[in-house]
Amino acid sequence: MNSMHDAGSSRSFRWWHETVIGALLVIVLLVAGWLVPGFLKPQSQLLLSRQLWEFAILALGMTLIIITGGIDLSVGSTMGLSAVAFGGVHAASGSLVAASLACLATGLCCGAVNGALVSQLRLHPLIVTLATFAAYRGIAEGWSQGHSYSRFGDDFSNLARGSWLGVPLPGTFFFVMAIGFAVFLAKTPNGRFLHAIGHNERAAKFSGIAVDRIRFWLYTMSGLLAGLASLIYVARFDTAKADFGKGFELDVITAVVLGGTSIYGGRGNILGTILGLLLIHETRMFVSRYWGSDELRSIVIGCLLIVAVLAYQLVSRRRRS
């Protein structure tokens, strides 16, 4: 990623944001380790990390989408719908494979609908995903009729609870994907095109980039990732309900933006997103461990988001002038 040369930017050190977020992360970890005994122990970190992976997987797709200047508010609802699809198919057929496929396929379809609306009808992503945010959740509620499905067997829950070489399975999965996404974003032409689209969509179009096709696949992929995240979530709780993933979209966007991806598009990378995710995750875990309060947690996260972006804006403006 060091080889990236942005024509428009003249900053000499381009990892500034990542450094700040990394430093913040270290501070949070140090404070947490000091105030909460045993917080930094590998075991407790591994235990806590269970709550991270679904977010992390969603954040990968969201990073790419936000880099192109778009947004996907429907990921949480897609998760709910996929979970219900999983439960419904499992109840009907009793097959875990069929249910998992249904779960992923539902996510894929949800994403494809978003993608088609955004790329073919040229609707603003915010509007499209705001509409499908309501629609997918509604379909999930209507389909499941408030019913929750559960007991899918231990083998299945081990998918989310088990570990490989000491790393939880979803975590291994996430890291493999994260590397794939990072390479795609930094080293492949299509990945670079995402930045181009985010910088100036019109110019990208005129220079021959298939903007619509890329957009379509981006949102489809985001839907598929939501299906995947839903699968992990279902496995972790051994339950499938329509309200799964509620509010996830906001947390995921928070993590991505905190990681230095510009909400206007054109700037961002996977490393930043991972740091953003970790910062939010550790802050959360620390706050809820230390004060034992979930409310405080959301206050801290909300303020963190605003303050981080504000600080970045203030400093980068000074650097520019």
């Binding site: 206050i299 996260i301 909300g302 988001l305």
Partner: peptide, 13 residues
């Protein structure tokens, strides 16, 4: 969108 997203979470908390 960032400011109000942050407030959305923070004010609810």
């Amino acid at each position: 969108i960032i400011v109000t997203l942050g407030l959305l979470t923070a004010l609810r908390g």
